[in-house]
Design a binder for these strands. Structure first.
Length: 925
DNA sequence: TGTCCCTGCAA
DNA sequence: TATTGCAGGGACA
């Protein structure tokens, strides 16, 4: 949605004049207010509004003075030092590309009010940039076809973007603000009000009566001194209300659409900045073009590259404050720590980061803590540095004890970058961080999941800033030293910057999120609540029977050896069975077997499909296939999992990546517990090693066919909806439709084919893929697909709509509004576009399923918190949740969890949850 | 030592 | 020429 920024120029000028020291340039001209305003405007430009206006008061009387001659009568004349800055300010504002508006007869407020409502009505999101609280009366929430109206105060960073936010700040709704202002009066503007009535009283009355008129009507009933004051003021109140009302119907020579931001006039800016001594701004002008060039390098494509960064955003101008080193303090004594804690508490919101000696949050030791509540200012508290000659640091326990009340205070909001890591560190030190409210990694993920979300990338992309690389302070590769061996001065540069940058990133990212309420909701209602849930699951871990795995390793080893001997015999020479390259030479060159499958690089493939294809021509391929299956299980699972047991807990703790999969799914690593085998007998045995401790059981609950159900919901196809509503076996029902059978006539083979079709549809399959999967001809596969679509026309239409939508807007959405941007859908080559279309088909289903289970996890976690530790969530595998449960609590859990999972979304088909109980994961599944 | 390639496990 | 991931071993610079 386009955005219009309306800047209340007069209010900023006054604020900056009084807030900043009386600076002058080399010629002695006053520049303080100018400096403040220019910085504010450059910050505004960084957010790249589509339209912008800088609104100031014209000279001469306004309608308010005609209405009430005493209006603003006691306002002192503008100081000369300020007056002198007005003209240069206008020149800079012009040169920056803003339109300046000055309307005689009305105040700047009325011009802003009029444009704001016009803009919102035209579907433009409007940001009013002001330090004047009276504008709260204009706040509007977005409606269909209409933009929102929000307030920001760039000086303080505060933002009022919803009715709720206004309520929180003033205790009344935006539409009650004028009534409140009338009751309170305003001594600065000389608006009369009720004596002794401040915001609290006004809000109380309005909460009771709703409107000023109702308060007036009920005035006789108000008791006490304040009641007398109210009755005395009655006559004045309607006038006060009128004076406080910002007009929204002023005839203007412009409309929002005529306020497009102009190209900035570099030459004039250079001259003006030089004249007034704005060196940082000047540097930005000169450095800007170089930074742009750097940023326009293509982003690193990831994975298949079917989607990646969407429209390459132009590099933001580098933050000038970043070109100078930030004001970073090393905190080495208790007094400074106390001072910082006081500051952070006062700020109410700060960025937090920890430094440790390991990447594994369940093993890492705390080395230092950094925080920042103001851009450019940050502190680093070293507490675990350890090298010859290290300065005296704060004692770790006393530092933690000092920080604990702040960190555990839910009323003080913390901002982090991948804060789940820091939550683990503090939890292991006995501190439960509360008020973990913002995570820049997740903000970035929700805004555009296919970009990178590490801090270095974010800083580069959003701030045009190169962070101090970890390698620069700790070295890299074999020479890397643990962070506790890094010199404290270097550590401060690195760690304090992390907190500083996190805070700045949040400023940008939260503003971007505000612009899209659906994304804001995904972030606020799904991702942020999930952070603590995932941290708990990771901390719980799962019990693994190492002895069982060792027995399996021995068994696998024995069978691998036999296969190896057999293979050597068949090949007539020894070779490395693990080497695709050697295998390729042996099979296709020496033995002359046909190479029917190619790798993506064009080499003859030795993968399963290729070996199966030649298994009837030679004995060797079958032996290799057997060997491979065994080797995979041993190297990836039975050997590795025992090594992953955390000695401190005796359990295996995976790590869930919340910003891992572009569709919104979680990913798991170290170890990956989302790909434990199940399909073969040998593989399934590994699940027997995932066990419950004595007195407990494992309970597994999984969604039945959730993605197909989502397809039914999204497509609205009558046949599919009916099948699910009737509780049918969906693959059997599909087979009956496609093959023209009655349900009971469907053969196992037909059901298998139907299942392949159903899954293929979820992945955007074509006839070629289905043919290969089923081992049938392309023509036959095409017929199946055609028949499927004729039986389920809603699905066909939905797929076409989705492609269309993806092509037109560049992204697709889940039921809950999560987006996946598809860069290559518009500008890729043929293959890339086709790939992007398949991803577009898949993402709404996969992503909605991810949204649903995430919601269920948050809900269930809340429920479990009240169950006294009788059960814990220990695994998530995309459509399945696994719990470790006291034996006596199993029944209760089975009553509650499937119900809550099924209730996590209201679709046009029921969500069905299956569950199982056992001593190990295999039994429970 | 770091990186790419091939392979294969899960939903 | 079927989606999303993680990870192992080999090969090579």
């Amino acid at each position: 949605m386009p955005r219009l920024v309306l800047i209340d120029g007069s209010s900023y000028l006054f604020r900056a004049f009084h807030a900043l020291p009386p600076l002058t340039n080399a010629d002695g001209e006053p520049t303080g207010a100018l400096f403040g305003v220019v910085n504010m405007l450059r910050a505004t430009l960084k957010e790249r509004p589509d339209y912008a206006a800088y609104v100031v008061d014209a000279s001469g009387p306004t309608f308010r003075e005609q209405m009430y001659p005493l209006y603003k009568a006691n306002r002192p004349p503008m100081p000369d030092d300020l007056r002198a800055q007005v003209e240069p300010m206008c020149r800079i504002v012009e040169a920056l590309g803003f339109t300046i508006l000055r309307e005689p007869g009305v105040e700047a407020d009325d011009v802003i009010g009029t444009l704001a409502l016009q803009g919102a009505a035209e579907g433009i999101d409007v940001t009013i940039s002001t330090s004047d609280k009276d504008f709260a009366q204009l706040v509007r929430e977005p409606a269909p076809g209409q933009g929102l109206v929000e307030l920001v105060n760039t000086m303080t960073g505060s933002r009022l973007d919803s009715i709720e936010a206004v309520m929180a700040k003033f205790g009344v709704r935006p539409d009650q603000i004028v009534d409140m202002l009338a009751l309170m009066g305003d001594s600065v503007d000389n608006i009369p009000g009720v004596a002794k009535c401040g915001p609290k009283t006004a809000a109380k009355w309005l909460a009771e009566h709703g409107t000023l008129d109702a308060v007036i009507a009920a005035a006789d009933a108000v008791k006490g001194k304040i009641g007398e004051s109210l009755r005395e003021a009655l006559g004045q109140l309607p006038l006060s209300r009128q004076l406080a009302t910002i007009r929204t119907d002023v005839p203007l020579p412009v409309t929002p659409r005529t306020l497009a931001l102009r190209e900035r006039d570099i030459e004039s800016l250079r001259e003006l900045y030089a004249r007034y001594g704005f060196n940082q701004a000047l540097k930005e002008l000169d450095g800007g073009s170089a930074a742009d060039a750097v940023e326009k390098e293509p982003g690193r494509a990831r994975g298949s590259g079917r989607y990646a960064a969407p429209v390459a955003e132009d590099a933001p101008p580098p933050d000038p404050a970043l070109s100078a080193p930030g004001e970073y303090e090393t905190v080495l004594d208790a007094d400074r720590l106390a001072a910082w804690i006081g500051m952070l508490r006062e700020a109410g919101c700060f960025a937090l980061d920890t430094e440790t000696d390991s990447l594994d949050p369940l093993r890492a030791n705390l080395v230092g803590i950094s925080f920042s509540a103001e851009a450019g200012r940050a502190a680093y508290v070293p507490i675990g540095h350890d090298y010859p000659g290290v300065p005296t640091q704060l004692d770790r326990q006393s530092a933690l004890d000092a920080l604990r009340p702040l960190l555990e205070d839910a009323g003080v909001r913390k901002i982090g970058q991948h804060g789940k890591y820091d939550l683990h560190i503090f939890r292991r030190l006995g501190i439960e961080v509360r008020g973990y409210a913002e995570d820049t990694m997740l903000e970035s993920f929700v805004l555009n999941s296919s970009q990178r979300h590490d801090m270095d990338s974010l800083a580069k992309r959003l701030l045009g800033y190169d962070t101090v690389a970890y390698e620069a302070v700790a070295g890299k590769g074999a020479k890397q030293i643990p962070f506790n061996a890094v010199a404290i001065d270097d550590a401060t540069r690195y760690a304090a910057e992390d907190a500083d940058i996190t805070l700045r990133l949040h400023g940008q990212l939260s503003a971007q999120l505000q612009a899209t309420p659906s994304l804001q909701a995904v972030y606020r209602e799904i991702e942020m609540p999930l952070v603590q849930v995932l941290a708990r699951i990771e901390a719980n871990g799962v019990m693994v029977d190492a002895d069982e795995l060792r027995r399996q390793t021995a068994d696998l080893s024995r069978r691998m050896l036999a296969a190896q001997q057999k293979a050597t015999e068949l090949a007539g020479r020894s070779f490395n069975l693990d080497s695709p390259k050697q295998l390729q030479a042996l099979l296709f060159d020496e033995l002359g077997l046909p190479a029917l499958v190619k790798t993506p690089k064009g080499q003859p493939s030795t993968n399963e499909e290729a070996l199966e294809a030649i298994a009837d021509q030679h004995e060797l391929p079958r032996v290799i296939l057997d060997y491979r299956g065994l080797a995979k299980l041993r190297s990836t699972y039975t050997e590795k999992l025992p090594e992953m047991i955390n000695p401190a807990t005796g359990r295996v703790h995976t790590s869930y990546h919340q910003a891992g999969a572009a569709t919104g799914r979680l990913a798991s690593s170290d170890p990956n517990l989302q790909n434990i085998p199940i399909r073969t007998e040998d593989g399934r045995r590994i699940r027997k090693a995932f066990v419950a401790p004595p007195g407990r059981r494992l309970v597994a609950c999984d969604y039945s066919q959730i993605e197909l159900r989502i397809m039914a919901h999204l497509s609205g196809d009558a046949g599919l909806l009916e099948a699910f509503s009737a509780g049918a076996d969906i693959h059997r029902a599909t087979a009956a439709e496609v093959f023209g059978r009655r349900l009971e006539e469907v053969t196992p083979n037909e059901r298998r084919a139907a299942k392949a079709i159903n899954f293929g549809l979820i992945y955007g399959m074509g006839a070629f893929g289905l043919a290969r999967n089923l081992g049938i001809g392309r023509g036959e596969a095409q017929e199946y697909i055609a028949t499927y679509f004729s039986r389920y026309p809603g699905v066909r239409d939905y797929m076409e709509r989705t492609r269309q939508q993806a092509r037109e807007q560049g992204y697709v959405e889940t039921v809950f509004g999560r987006r996946l941007y598809l860069e290559y859908i518009q500008r890729g080559n043929q293959a890339q576009r086709a790939g992007a279309e398949r991803a577009a088909i898949n993402a709404p289903m996969q992503g909605t399923a991810a949204d649903i289970i995430k919601r269920a996890m948050v809900d269930i976690d809340g429920w479990l918190a009240g169950q006294g530790g009788a059960a814990q969530m220990i695994l998530q595998v995309h459509d399945e949740l696994v719990f470790e449960v006291d034996e006596g609590f199993v029944e209760a859990l089975l009553r509650e969890v499937p119900r809550r999972m099924a209730a996590a979304a209201e679709l046009r088909v029921p969500l069905v949850v299956d569950s199982g109980v056992g001593a190990d994961w295999d039994e429970a599944h």
